[in-house]
Write a protein that binds this DNA or RNA. Structure first.
Lengths: 241, 241
DNA sequence: TCTCGTTTTTGACAGGGATCAAGGCATAAG
DNA sequence: CTTATGCCTTGATCCCTGTCAAAAACGAGA
């Protein structure tokens, strides 16, 4: 389903395995914990590997687990009764997923690429967090940032045209993802998923991208590759069609 | 601009004025503080009264204040360079507004009705919160809830039809606002503001409401009044047009 | 290199909602 | 009670996007 890096070794508990080598330890919510506390937290959790396409949590389910993303990209989504889907967030390495301090999972979480998580039972995590203000503070900061970003996205969904939506999306990916030597970004999303983020259809996304390619603003290479040739023009398109 | 209750006495510091009589003290984020701490917090803040239409914070401004809403309804909004506006949230009594632990105000805050706030300088509030875990926990809970609700709203903006949007909106107002003896809800929003919440136009909102009135699902009384005659039918409309 | 299945692009068409423009009603003022 | 002033509603028209359908391109595997 995705053209990704080879999956990591296996699923095993964090306990007995140090966080020292963790690549996201300085960026995840555990960054402010001292070594002892971080060890204590790691003993609650375990490493889990996911394959692209796997769903970790379903909308409406009981909230039983939360997790740090160690590696990979995942989507958060909700859908209507008749199957229309809206992606409400995309999370990357070091991000936090799940609903702490609440009983219901508000949206599904699905891996877009192969991914690794540091997974905690929610109850245990909540208990730990209640006694560790640094952790809650970090979580609060992150949640406030998420809320700001989410509200910004509402402007896109409610008020922007298809062209503005696609341009905004591409700039956003350009900011979040690293381009290769040729300046090409490898999108972790299919056209359908892009449409589900932007609240449009796959055909509209495709047409807008083709137009932008024709006018030289971007370049499309293969299915998932994009080069942002003229960022300034793209920014203009993102603002007012 | 609005047909509301008479404005309260005046602007005066909370200091010297007890929180004992505060109508939202059991529901706002200060609910879990003990009496001493709550007094200390109240000494940081001051009461402010707003008239309908007044803006407290502007999008992009430095984040200098945060506040509890004591009474009234306010909107949070962002807009594009060319003036299209999207309302990203509506806040009621006991809700919290402003951006703690951050330097930038992400969206404007404007009173929809006359309102009263308990206003804090952000720096002082942040400092206080850093030493009071209960407060941060409460704020975290509230922010997580806001995020869940906001993401739900993305589904409406991105995937629902005009009819579904209006039906969902009316049900939401029915849940949040109390109807009078005749079952009539007094909307705190104009048609334009409703359109700005739903990501449509004033004409579309008007047409949808008129249709629903014609089919007997709702009843319109005056400019701001609505009676939800058939909630079940409304719920059906909210789900699939 | 060729084939097959999937994803993406392209085309034709239509419909929902935006836009433009009056007209009708509440609400407030005289 | 009468007159203004904005809202709100209604009407006519257009166009952006969604929908349906098919061709093309890509990438995986033989």
């Amino acid at each position: 389903m995705a053209q990704n890096v080879a999956p990591p070794p296996a699923t095993r508990p964090c306990s007995g395995q140090s966080c020292d080598a963790c690549v996201v330890r300085d960026h995840a919510i555990c960054a402010d914990l001292n070594d002892d506390d971080r060890d204590a937290l790691s003993r609650i959790g375990r490493r889990v590997t996911l394959q692209a396409g796997q769903t970790v949590m379903w909308e409406g389910d009981d909230s039983t687990v939360v997790a740090n993303v160690i590696e990979g990209t995942l989507k958060l989504a909700t859908s209507t009764g008749d199957g229309r889907e809206q992606i409400v967030g995309v999370v990357y390495a070091a991000d936090f997923i799940g609903r702490p301090f609440g009983t219901r999972t508000p949206h599904s979480v699905t891996a877009l690429t192969d991914a690794r998580l540091c997974l905690f039972p929610r109850g245990a995590f909540d208990g730990f967090a209640m006694h560790h203000g640094e952790l809650q503070h970090r979580l609060l900061q992150r949640t406030l940032d998420d809320l700001d970003r989410t509200r910004d996205w509402m402007l896109l969904l409610g008020r922007k045209t298809a062209r503005e939506k696609v341009a905004t999306f591409l700039l956003d990916m350009g900011r979040r993802l690293r381009a290769d030597a040729d300046g090409v970004i490898d999108l972790p999303l299919s056209r359908q998923q892009i449409a589900d983020i932007l609240g449009t259809t796959i055909e509209t996304v495709s047409r807008q991208m083709t137009d932008m390619k024709r006018t030289g603003v971007i370049d499309l290479v293969g299915r998932r590759g994009v080069r942002l040739v003229d960022r300034q023009a793209l920014e203009a398109l993102a603002e007012a069609g």
